[in-house]
């Protein structure tokens, strides 16, 4: 809560360092995807600039027409649509990973950028800290 904290402290908390989260697992068989999203939301809550990357089976987290309630799992995928409220706007998906899995560019969140393997990697390299989930 920025108003409760003196300005000089918030200045120290918000650095220019950028954080990337690299997602590599499908959404439902483990808690990894949800934990990754929770981590992103925490960074967002503290105004830390953060980008989300999806590669390999991680792309299964963002494809459209999924229905977690069919298998009685709490649908954390719905939370992706709230990312804008946490100022998380850089979301990248690897095109080769989609192609490999024969997936169309149909996603359940709107502002996804699909990048070639090389562009994806270059964008990832531009971040100071990278967490892989």
């Amino acid at each position: 809560m920025s108003e409760a904290i003196p300005n000089n402290i918030t200045d120290n908390m918000t650095s220019n360092r950028t954080v990337a989260i690299l997602n590599t697992e499908a959404p439902f068989s483990s808690a990894t995807g949800k934990e990754s999203l929770d981590t992103a939301l925490i960074f967002g809550s503290y105004e830390q600039a953060i980008s989300l990357f999806f590669i390999g089976d991680g792309v299964f987290q963002v494809i459209g027409d999924q229905n977690a309630t069919e298998i009685e799992i709490k649908d954390y995928l719905k939370t992706f649509s709230a990312l804008g409220f946490y100022d998380i706007e850089n979301i990248y998906v690897c095109r080769e990973s989609l192609t490999e899995r024969n997936l169309p560019e149909n996603f359940h969140i709107s502002n996804i950028q699909v990048l070639s393997n090389k562009d994806f990697s270059q964008r990832l390299h531009q971040h100071n800290v990278i967490f892989r989930f």
């Binding site: 709490k74 954390y76 719905k78 939370t79 709230a82 946490y86």
Partner: peptide, 9 residues
Amino acid sequence: YNTSPAIRA
């Protein structure tokens, strides 16, 4: 959104 919003959100 299946999540309770933190204050900033």
